[in-house]
Structures are given as C-alpha cells and as structure tokens.
Amino acid sequence: MKMILRMIAAMLVAGAVIFWVAAGANRGWTKTQIPIKTVDAVTGLEGIQWQAKFVPGVDFLGAALLAAGVLAGISIFIPLKSKQPKTENNK
C-alpha cells in the first residue's frame, strides 16, 4: 500500500508536468477559454472570438504537486509490510 501510494504520487507529478509542458507550459493562470483574433477586411477592426480550450497554468501544476505531496505524506504513516499472523505450524 505504501509503495502504491508513492507510485501514484510520482505518476501524478510526472503526468501533470508532461501535460503542462505539452499544452504550452503556460506560466499564467489556467485558462478554459482562449481569444482568437479575427480581422474585419472592410473596417480593419480586430475582433475577438472566444474558443473553449483547456490550457493548464501554474495553479494546475500546484494543485497536482499538492495532491502528490498529500499522497506521499499519507504513505509515511503506512507500515512497510503488514506482519503475518503466527500459525500453529510455525510454533
């Protein structure tokens, strides 16, 4: 159990970092809408259309690291191996 929790924590950190880097390593806040600029050919005005897209930010990384830290912390209090109960044959 101890090892499983630590493996999950490590995978959580690795997964979050890989996802964050793959999504553009956004050093700002997490975004769920991104602005797409469009130019009106007649007026020359620049308009903004909002497109739904998840872009993880440093708050996403922080939350993943915190969750991994909690899991790793819990694992400290779990004994390495549970003791086998003694049977009559072992006496």
Partner: peptide
C-alpha cells in the same frame, strides 16, 4: 465581459 480564466 470575458477573461480566459473562469474563476476570474
């Protein structure tokens, strides 16, 4: 009014 972060 729109910003990219929903909580903001």
């Amino acid at each position: 009014l729109m910003v990219p972060n929903p909580m903001q």
